[in-house]
Design a protein around this nucleic acid. Sequence first.
DNA 1: GTCCCCCGTTTGCTATTCGAGAACAACACT
DNA 2: AGTGTTGTTCTCGAATAGCAAACGGGGGAC
Lengths: 255, 255
Amino acid sequence: MTKRAKHPVRTTEKSLRLIAELNQLGEARVTTLASELGMGKSAVHNHLSTLEKHGYVVKDSETKTYRLSLKFLDIGGQIRSQRDVYKVAEPKVEELAEESGELVHLVVEEDGKGVYLCRSKGERAVELDTYIGCRHHMHSTAFGKAILSRLPTDRVDAIIDQHGLPKVTPRTITSREALFEELERTRERGFAVDDEERLEGLRCIAAPIKFDSDVIGAISVSGPTARIDDDWESNEFVSELQRTVNVIELNKYNV
Amino acid sequence: MTKRAKHPVRTTEKSLRLIAELNQLGEARVTTLASELGMGKSAVHNHLSTLEKHGYVVKDSETKTYRLSLKFLDIGGQIRSQRDVYKVAEPKVEELAEESGELVHLVVEEDGKGVYLCRSKGERAVELDTYIGCRHHMHSTAFGKAILSRLPTDRVDAIIDQHGLPKVTPRTITSREALFEELERTRERGFAVDDEERLEGLRCIAAPIKFDSDVIGAISVSGPTARIDDDWESNEFVSELQRTVNVIELNKYNV
DNA sequence: GTCCCCCGTTTGCTATTCGAGAACAACACT
DNA sequence: AGTGTTGTTCTCGAATAGCAAACGGGGGAC
C-alpha cells in the first residue's frame, strides 16, 4: 500500500500535471497552462511538444491550442480488450441489456474504486452520467457492494480507509458498521442493491462475477425506481441478471 | 507540422517509453523493463512508482508486476464524451447497427489516421479486430476515403507523406494517382467504398459527416462480401447510411 | 529449518538536464 | 506602421535524475 513514491520523478510529475490540467480544461494554450500551474512558459512548451511528439497531445496549429489526443482512448481500449473478463462478459452484457431493456454495466475494481468496462443500453434505458472508464465509489453503488461482499474484510477496510464513505444522496450508507451489515445481507442474497443511494430516482441491482473464489468484476442493471421493483424476492431482473452471471462464470473457465 | 520537439524533455520520454513497453507486454517486472529498455533498475523503479502514485500504473503486490491502469480508459472516455460528434452520432450509430444488422463504426481523423470513436454490432455483425480507440490507415478503409474526399488536397498530400500507402491486401490502393481518382469518384458518389482493400472477405461503405463544409468524421458499415452487394447503385445499406448521416448533420447544428 | 539466490528497494554522489529569464519571432488588432 | 500579445528559441545556473553499490526480504532447493 505504498501509495507515495519514495523518490518521485519530478519531471514526469510535471508532465502528468499538464495532462491532468488539459483533461480538465478540454483545451488550452501555453500561457494559460503556465500561469495555471505556476510553471514557466518554456517549461510548458517543452513538455507539451514532447507529449505531442509521442502522440499524447495534439496541437491545433490554427488556434495554437493543445488538447489531449485520442491515444488515451487507444491505450485504454487495448488494456480493456486484453482483460479476460471483458472478452467473456461483453457479449453477455449486450444480451442482458436487450433482454431487460434497461442499462447494463460491467464493472471491475481498481485502486479501491469501481471502473466501468462496458455499458449497453436496452430499449428503455435511462440516460446516465456514466461513461466507459469512469470511476465510482464502491459503497454507494450496487456493483461496488457486490464486489465488496466477496472481498476479504481487511481489503474492504483498506478501501474504506482510502476513499472514505462520502454521502452522495440521503440514502447513501455512510457508516462502516452499516456497510458491513449490508455486505452480509448481500452475501446471503447473492446480489447487491442500490436503492437511490447514488442517485435519487435510480435503482440498481448487481451480482459479482466469481472465478476460483475470487471476484473479478460485477454486472449491474440500472433503471428508474418506477420500473425496478424493490420487492427483491420476486424481481424479474434479478433472475435475468443471475442467469447472465452464471453463463459468464462458466464461459470464463474456457478462456 | 513540427513533428519533432526541439527541446524534448528526456525524462518524460523515458516515462513514456515505459508506458509503451508496458502496454506491449501487458505486464512486467522491474528487471524485465530495465533490461528491455536499457535503463538502470533504480531509474525504472522511480518512474514506475511515480506513475503508480498518479494512478497510471498498477502494481500487483503479490507478483511484484506492474501493468497500465484503467486510468487511460477513464481519460480516453472523457475525451470521447466531450466530442460533439460523438454526442450527436453515438445514438444514431446504434440505430443504424440495429437497422442494418451489420457492424457500424463512427470514426474521426487524428494525426493522419482514422480513430474509432464508437462501434455498434447489429444482429448478424461480423467479428472484427477493431476496438474503440484503435487506429487505421485512411487509404485502405472506406471511412478513411470518405474523410479524405472532403479534405483539402494539400492536407491529403501531407497525410500520404506522413504515413505512406502500405499494401494490406492485394486490392489496397497503393499509388497516389489511383487514390486521388478514387477520392474524386467518392466525392461524386457521396460515399466511399472499401472492397476487400483492408481485409479479404470484408466490404465496407462509409459516408463523411460534414459540418459547415468541414468533415468532422465518418460513419461506416462493414460486412462480409456475401451480404454487402457491390452493385453500389442499388445497395440498400447505402441509403440507410446516408439517411443516418443526414440526421446527424442536422442534429449537429443544435448542439 | 537453513542457506542461498534473486529481485525490488534504498542511498549517496555526480553528470545530466530541466527550466527561469530574456531575447526573438509571428501574428492580430488598432 | 505600431503595439500588445503569445509561441518559440537560447543560455546558463541550479535542480535532479539515475548509475553503481549496498540493503533487505521473500521463495525455492536441499
